[in-house]
Design a protein around this nucleic acid. Structure first.
Lengths: 315, 315
DNA sequence: TGTTGTTACGGAAAACGTAAATATT
DNA sequence: AATATTTACGTTTTCCGTAACAACA
C-alpha cells in the first residue's frame, strides 16, 4: 500500500475511469497505473473498480468507500506540504482570491495594499467569476478563499463566514426625474416608480440580482430590464449615457468618485445583503490567509475561522 | 514522501523519540529509519525532530503540526484496511469489547449469545479493566468499544453514548436487621442507618464508587468500609459470610439468582447512574459493531452512532 | 479497427540491512 | 564506556517504462 496507488485510484476516478488518461495526467505509463491498481486491490482483498471484461466502468460498492477514504488521505497529504511550507517559507507563497468583480473592484483595494505591505513575498492573484464558479474554484483548491454573496453558504464542503452587509443603490443621471426627488421622497421610493423607467442591473447570480427579481415578482411588477452586466462599472457607464436607471451594490457607488451620477439608497426595497468569505473545510490555511481574512473583517480572527473550518460552520 | 516515512515518524514519537526502539518495534533497521526520516524532513523542507547533536529530544514547532497530520493520515490508512475487510470478509473478523466486570457478568450475557448467533465467524473477546483503562484500550485501538460508567464521556478522543441507567442496591443477609424493615421503611433508609454497619463495596473508579464516597462525604459521614472489590460477586460472597452489608450495582442483584440475600434499592441515596458505550472517534466501525450496539440498546441505531462518531458527540 | 486494459520483461532507482564512524550522556 | 544517531556501501527489492497481447465497442 503506498501513496502512489492512492493517487492512481483518485486520478482514475477523476478521469472518468480512463486509465490511459489518468496515466497521462500523472506523467507516467499506463501499464504502470494498471498494475499498481491491481496490486492495491489484491492487497485490500476487494475490487475497487467495476470491470466489464477489460473496460473499467465505475466503482464497486467497496470502491466507493475506499475512494472516500483515499480522498481524505490525499487531502491530508496535501496539508502536510502546506504545513511545512508555512514554516519553511514563512510568509512566502501564493494566495488566490476568488471573487466577483464587485469585491475585486470596490472592496479588495482597501485590503490588498496593506496585505502586500505585510507579506511582500506572497504572490496574490484574483480569480473573478460568478459565485457558483468561485465556490467550485475553492472546492477544487484552485483558490484559497472566495469572497461573494450568500450563495457560498449553500455550497457543501465550504465553510463560510459573513464579512459585511450592504444594500443596493439606485443610480441615475442628475437630469433624471428620480434625481429631483426630495430626500424624504427618495427614502420612500417605490418599486412602481422604478419600474416606470428602463432598468440596468446585474447579470443573474451576481450581487443580489436574484433578490431584485424576487422583489419585483412578489409585487407582480415586470421591470423593463434593458441591460444586464456582471459589473457596476459597466452599469454606471450605460446609466451615464442615458440608457436607463441602474441598480447596483452600495459599495460600488461613491458620490465623490461618481460625480456624474446620483445615488438613491434602496435598502428599503431590496433588503440587506451579506457578503461572505468561504474556504474549503478541512484544508490547512497558510498564516497569511488568516491575516487576510482579519484584514477584511476584524471579527474574523484566527480562532473564529479555525472553528468554522473544523466544524464546517456556515454562520 | 511515502507511508513508510509516516510510520517511522509516528513510531519514533510514540517510542519517546528513540529511533532504535522505533526501528525495533517496526521490525526494521535503525539506520533505515534514520535515513527515511531525514529524507522526509528534507523533502518537506523543515526539521520535524528537535536534535541536540545526534540525540533526538522532541518535536520542533513544525514537527508538532506535521505529526498531527500524519496521525490523521495513518488513521485513515487503517480505515482503508477496515473498510475493505468489511467487504472482503463480511461478518468475519474480531471484536474486542472492553468492559468492567459488571458488564461482562450481568449485561453482556443477554447480548453476546444473540450476537454470536448472528455473526458466528466473528471472534469476540472481552477485555476487563477499570473505566480509565478501558478508555485507553479504545483510544489505542486495542478494543473496538468500551462499556462502562460515565468516566468514558470525559475521555477526549472518544465518542460515547448512553446505554442504560441503573441505581445501587444494598444487599444484606436475610437475618440482618436491615432485612427486617418494612417495605416503606426500606424505601426511606438513610445513610446514617447504613453507616451503622460495616460496608463492603466497589473499588475506586468502579460502578459509581466515586458517587458513594461523595454522598457519604457530603453528609459528613465516615462509613466503615471493611472490604473493597472490583466485582459484585466478590462483594456478595462476603456479605453472605456476614462480613457486612454490601452496596452494589442494581444489575448485579437478582432475587431469583441470589436467594440467600435481600436487596434494598438505594437510588434515593446514591442517585441514578448511566452506563455508556464509547468508540474512538474517527475510526471506521465494522458492520457488526453497529449491530452489537443496537443489540445493547435499540436506540443506538447506526445513524445515531455514526453521528456521534463524526461529530465527536458525548451525549 | 481503433481504443483501452493486462501481461511480460528488463533496466533504473529506491529501499533496506550490515558495518563503521561519530556524537552524547 | 555505553548508548544512540548518522554515514557509507552493497545487495535486494520494488518501481516503472517499452513492447506485446487481449478484449471491448
Amino acid at each position: 500500500m503506498n501513496l502512489q496507488q492512492f493517487r492512481f485510484v483518485r486520478e482514475t476516478i477523476r478521469r472518468n475511469f480512463n486509465l490511459t488518461e489518468a496515466a497521462r495526467s500523472l506523467f507516467t505509463s499506463q501499464p504502470g497505473v494498471s498494475k499498481a491498481i491491481i496490486e492495491f486491490e489484491d492487497e485490500l482483498g476487494v475490487k475497487i473498480f467495476e470491470r466489464h471484461g477489460k473496460r473499467i466502468r465505475g466503482l464497486t460498492k467497496p470502491g466507493v468507500q475506499v475512494a472516500q477514504v483515499i480522498d481524505r488521505i490525499m487531502r491530508e497529504v496535501d496539508n502536510l506540504k502546506k504545513v511545512s511550507d508555512e514554516f519553511a517559507r514563512h510568509n512566502e507563497g501564493g494566495l488566490v482570491i476568488a471573487c466577483t468583480h464587485a469585491q475585486a473592484r470596490y472592496i479588495l483595494p482597501r485590503v490588498i495594499p496593506a496585505f502586500r505591505a505585510r507579506f511582500p513575498k506572497v504572490r496574490v492573484s484574483l480569480a473573478e467569476g460568478s459565485p457558483p464558479h468561485l465556490a467550485q474554484l475553492v472546492l477544487h483548491e484552485q483558490a484559497d478563499v472566495a469572497i461573494a454573496t450568500e450563495t457560498l453558504a449553500l455550497t457543501p464542503g465550504l465553510a463560510s463566514l459573513p464579512v459585511y452587509s450592504w444594500e443596493h443603490v439606485i443610480v441615475v443621471r442628475p437630469d433624471h426625474p428620480l434625481a429631483q426627488l426630495k430626500s424624504s421622497e427618495a427614502k420612500a421610493i417605490t418599486l412602481e416608480q422604478l419600474a416606470a423607467y428602463p432598468i440596468i442591473t446585474y447579470d443573474h447570480a451576481f450581487s443580489g440580482r436574484t433578490t431584485i427579481d424576487e422583489v419585483f415578482a412578489s409585487k407582480n411588477i415586470k421591470p423593463d430590464l434593458v441591460l444586464e452586466a456582471i459589473d457596476a462599472d459597466v452599469i454606471k457607464t450605460y446609466v451615464d449615457v442615458g440608457l436607463g436607471i441602474g441598480i447596483i451594490a452600495g459599495m460600488a457607488f461613491d458620490p465623490r468618485r461618481d460625480p456624474d451620477l446620483v445615488g438613491i439608497p434602496a435598502g428599503h426595497l431590496f433588503g440587506t445583503h451579506v457578503t461572505r468569505v468561504a474556504v474549503k473545510s478541512g484544508v490547512f490555511l497558510r498564516d497569511y490567509v488568516f491575516v487576510l481574512l482579519e484584514m477584511l473583517a476584524p471579527e474574523l480572527t484566527r480562532d473564529v475561522v479555525t472553528d468554522a473550518i473544523e466544524n464546517n460552520h456556515t454562520n
